[in-house]
Amino acid sequence: MALLRSDLPLGGDGSARFLPWIIGCMVYLAALALAATMGAGRVADHWRSDLSGTFSIQIPPIAASTAAERDQLLHDIVDAITKMPEVASVHLVDDAEKQKLLEPWLGAGGLPEDVRLPDLVVVKLRSDAPSGLAAVRTRVAALAPEFTIEDHARWQGDMMAFTQSIELLASIIIGLIAAAAVTTVIFVTKTGLSIHRRVIEIVHLVGAYDSYIAKQFLLHAMRLGFIGGIAGAGLAGLTLIGLDRVLGTGQTSLLPALALDLDQWLTLAVVPIAVSIVAMITAHLTVLYVLGRDL
């Protein structure tokens, strides 16, 4: 109780009344930016985990002249790869699956029967076999020299660059928001010091250290920062839940679910606390700096 007592009438400051609103807006934006960062990281992890250690082998139609030879070649390749210790699983993509993959571009009819597609073998390596790709490449080359391997490296690289850009942008936004919040608290604190100059002089005269006065501003800033922070974070939480509901109704396979994990929700919950702490420290240092210049 004594800890929270304020001798200065800071609660009546007109300058401080808008602080919770500004902090609330900033926390709202910061929380969304943070959620975007976490979401981008989540998407990247999703893609990385899906594609990590996975590649596909394409065997062009010219590798075999007849259907029987083709079937035999594919059988040999699958058999050879399956036996390799570096390989976790092998999947031969059949014609029906290939048609399904092309359906978004070519429609339900697919290709005419006389147009032959390359055969695809999807290979997943064991996680403890980083050199498996080279071994598979050597093994398949001995059976079908015309093969090509698509290890998604370029696509993965582009996607990683994209998600990293989003993360960087969100981090810059969070940094700018933090800087704006700090500036606002400095402004409000300086205004408060100016408004209460006479009261502060009296408190000084009865023997108060600057730190005693700074503590009162600190608690005031913490209170306002926390109120604004809670409101902003709450609103951001509702926005994220709403977005998840809206996006969750679509049938998109590219993006993983937007719903945040418990850890990520907890991270968002830390935002108002962090903002309060930043406001506290800023107010405290501002008061000490400004009063330190007086006699």
């Binding site: 009546g12 408190v203 009865v206 023997g207």
Partner: peptide
């Protein structure tokens, strides 16, 4: 101890809190 002509009491504090100020600060 300092006494001013214009009292310089803190308007947001009661008489008790005004008088208590030096003790609480200490």
């Amino acid at each position: 101890g300092v006494v001013f002509q214009d009292f310089r009491l803190l308007s947001n504090l009661t008489a008790l809190d005004n008088v208590a100020l030096p003790l609480r600060i200490a």
